[in-house]
Amino acid sequence: MAQSYDSRLLAGEVRAPADVAIEQVHVEDGAKIGIGTPVLSFDTLELQRRLGVAQNKRQLVLIEGERIQDFATMPRIPKDVTTIEYEVVTEREALLAQNRAEADKADYFKEQVEILRRQHSVGATLKSDLDRVETAYYKQLADHEHISESIRLRDVQSIIARYRHQMSLLKQDIEIKHLLRAIELSTIRGSISGRVRIHVFSIMFVSKDDLLFSVES
């Protein structure tokens, strides 16, 4: 497993924090260095690989987000509206039957909304979407109106999908940030000024606590 390294300089003498390969020595033996001068870098091959994986996965998550967006915005196929188009006495009964069917789904709806509320820690937009759908759903159910296409269970499903997508994206962003920081810390910099004595060479593998370099101030 890849490790990140702390670039602190210990009392003028720097030892390897772990078993690790030296990627590059940036300064000549005997050179003068100042605070912040890069002295040497550890091998970051595995970190770079993980960064590549995380960035690639982030791109895939973004494509998945497009699919979720498509799912939410695709035109909806209307129900049979024969009785609505041509005004006959059966219209009211048809709507009532429709509402009864929707009411049967209300328990499932409520359950899904509850799950979302419990998980609810990310995104104000998501929260307002959820509030809007829930309020509209219950209002129309209470008013005994026809449940409109815009607030069907599909909306709840797409909100859940968006929520999961946000979480995946957040996870990838955190992972990328962490890896970039670890790569940055793989370069050891001088924390005191002075003449540097280098004890290692580029491409060498060193063991934990091996002396890497020392600084004579």
């Binding site: 498509d70 695709m74 035109p75 196929i77 209307p78 049979d80 509206v81 024969t82 188009e85 041509y86």
Partner: peptide
């Protein structure tokens, strides 16, 4: 009406499938 509605639904479904 029923026939017309059926065709309209099929058309919307076809448009949906095409975009998808």
């Amino acid at each position: 009406l029923s026939m017309a509605t059926g065709y309209r639904q099929q058309l919307i479904a076809a448009q949906y499938e095409s975009t998808k």
